[in-house]
Design a protein around this nucleic acid. Structure first.
Lengths: 241, 241
DNA sequence: CGCTGGATTGACTCGGATCAAGTCGAGTGG
DNA sequence: CCACTCGACTTGATCCGAGTCAATCCAGCG
């Protein structure tokens, strides 16, 4: 039984049985964390690479005025920067959103795996570039989309990403996010998030309640969001490098 | 005489003479481009890695409604993602802001250099992580800073980054950006950018006119911006990996 | 010269923030 | 089984930062 990380990387390119085994071996040493637990804080010295196996986490930064900005959601299969160890300190924190199972891969293990398994390396590079593209898409949302578009866009993204790693019935999906968290992620206030969600519900596009997202009308939602899934790079390069 | 790229990477860690020479050799094949020229467009198949030697460029994306969001400024010494070739298509474009000299490094050259010069590889990874941190800082700005703070923050960032690669007298610096471009970068309107710049000028913090930035009162500007240079990772890790 | 791209300023509007009360549901303990 | 609490969600009233629209200005330049 392969874990979410292996599953995700497989999606970026075929892996041999040996590759699978190596990945699996590297992610067996996992720990459980409660919700709202800091895996690493801003200013900390980076350690091993984190790999989410179960549960969600987010990258965030607290500003001097006390407000918080969430810059990324991490779900099962996601991992933090491969070369994180070359930096002297973290410029942001990573905190669990739900209870979570997280594996760590040491720097040595990582380099070893890269040397011995080029296909793993390539899949990880793709994964990292997708994460970067996601950051850019986030900037686009914050800069040029209205609040309704922003919320719809994020929902589209999370839906697509989550569906890649968790089986889910129809257009229904478990989204373990509070409205306050969404506000921190989208640069809005919880109050306004609430109103926007209401609008989207009344428009018949989607419903979000008690940690569960239901896409009522995918076409309508995508349309509102102006969503273009390109940046998630799910369509792969045909000719391998 | 070494170019801006070599200079910048040196700042991330000591390089041997051989490293220097290899970098220099890889970036001799350079071309000139006029301003407002697309080096690569959204949807294009990624080619070689771009390295800015002279002039500025930006990463951008045009939305369906015609508005534009700039997601990064590239100045001499900056380069685009190392592993860009593993993706099937670009999810954003890169366009010159000024007339520019740009070198390209092929994928083969890149891998060769990584294998033969581990110090170069490390410096490039740091550089890439800094770029990523910059993207996150951008998100923080868009999400949680007021327009005045945003403008001040960007000016602080550009000033620090530019001072690393170009010698400049005092707190004076050439910033080849129009107010419209700043608007596209900061998610505001040109009109409002103009008013904010006026406010900052009247506050005695900085002056920006005709492509030249003058920091009148660095302390004041940093204070307004809530600027924390951590994310640029100029303080290096003492113990090498 | 007059043209053009950029900068500037004013008047008005509006999206989202802010402030302030609730409501609802899942515990939890008596 | 009910009262209490607490975190999350809702809703209304009001305010303000930034957008919009529309002139005008200005410098460089063919």
């Amino acid at each position: 039984m392969t874990n979410a990380f292996v599953e995700k990387l497989r999606g970026f390119g075929p892996l041999s049985e040996q590759d699978d085994a190596a990945l699996q071996a590297a992610t067996t040493r996992a720990r459980n964390y409660p919700r709202k637990h800091d895996l690493i804080r801003e200013g900390d010295r980076p350690g091993p690479v984190f790999v989410m196996l179960k549960g969600w986490a987010c990258r965030y930064k607290i500003l001097p005025n006390g407000t918080r900005q969430v810059m990324a959601f991490m779900m099962p299969g996601d991992c933090c920067d491969l070369h994180i160890n070359v930096l002297a300190y973290m410029d942001h924190g990573i905190q669990t959103i739900t209870q979570a199972t997280v594996a760590t891969i040491s720097h040595e293990e990582m380099t070893g795996m890269f040397d011995d398994h080029p296909k793993i390396a390539k899949a990880m590079y793709i994964s990292q570039l997708v994460d970067e593209g996601t950051l850019r898409a986030w900037i686009v949302s914050m800069g040029r989309r209205s609040s309704i578009e922003r919320v719809a866009h994020l929902m589209c993204e999370l839906y697509l990403r989550a569906r890649n790693v968790t089986a889910c019935e129809e257009e229904q999906l478990v989204l373990p996010v509070t409205q306050a968290l969404l506000a921190d992620a989208l640069g809005m206030t919880p109050v306004h998030i609430n109103r926007v969600i209401k609008t989207l519900r009344e428009a018949g596009a989607m419903m979000l309640s008690r940690g569960s997202l239901q896409i009522a009308d995918p076409g309508k939602l995508v349309n509102i969001a102006g969503f273009d899934e390109n940046y998630l790079h799910r369509r792969m390069r045909s000719v391998s490098a």
